[in-house]
């Protein structure tokens, strides 16, 4: 259904829900959710298959490309999906324009900062020596 068919003239100009922009965000949220179906299952299955959950075993797991690459993807896609998802909650419940901008900016910084910390730690494991 194209927007022109269904929207009133005002709706066509605004064309926007509570997110105040188009369908890209909606679609990204769903695509990342499909990716996380695989990455999340991989993560849980990996924890179950590891013989032990001590530091040495975990280092060996994340040092190998088979562990490091999916973990990097899980971090990147996970933080992106979290940011997109929490933004929906903010856009739904915070109505004042300034506050919404402040919340969304704070959450963007948190997601990028948290993702950077996690990726740095992973890089240190993946490229460091196996003790």
């Amino acid at each position: 259904m194209s927007l022109g068919d269904s929207a009133t003239p005002l709706g066509r100009v605004r064309g926007l829900g509570s997110a105040h922009h188009g369908g890209e965000h909606w679609l990204t949220e769903r695509v990342t959710s499909i990716a996380l179906l695989f990455l999340g299952t991989w993560f849980i299955a990996s924890l179950l298959l590891l013989p032990k959950l001590d530091q040495r075993t975990l280092i060996e797991w994340l040092h190998a490309p088979s562990g490091a690459i999916p973990m990097a993807l899980l971090i990147i896609v996970g933080f992106r999906h979290a940011l997109d998802g929490v933004k929906v909650v903010v856009d739904d419940y915070v109505h004042e324009e300034g506050s919404r901008f402040a919340w969304n900016t704070l959450l963007l910084f948190l997601a990028v900062g948290g993702g950077a910390i996690a990726l740095f730690a992973l890089a240190r494991i993946a490229f460091g020596a196996v003790a």
Binding site: Q55, V86, I125
Partner: peptide, 30 residues
């Protein structure tokens, strides 16, 4: 929504902390 928010903050927060602890050596992980 509730579980999504919990996973976003507590879940990813603990994931980042856990990875940092693993990367910091046996003492940090301890």
């Amino acid at each position: 929504r509730v579980t999504g928010v919990a996973l976003s903050f507590a879940g990813l927060g603990i994931l980042a902390w856990w990875l940092f602890a693993i990367s910091g050596g046996p003492d940090a992980y301890g």
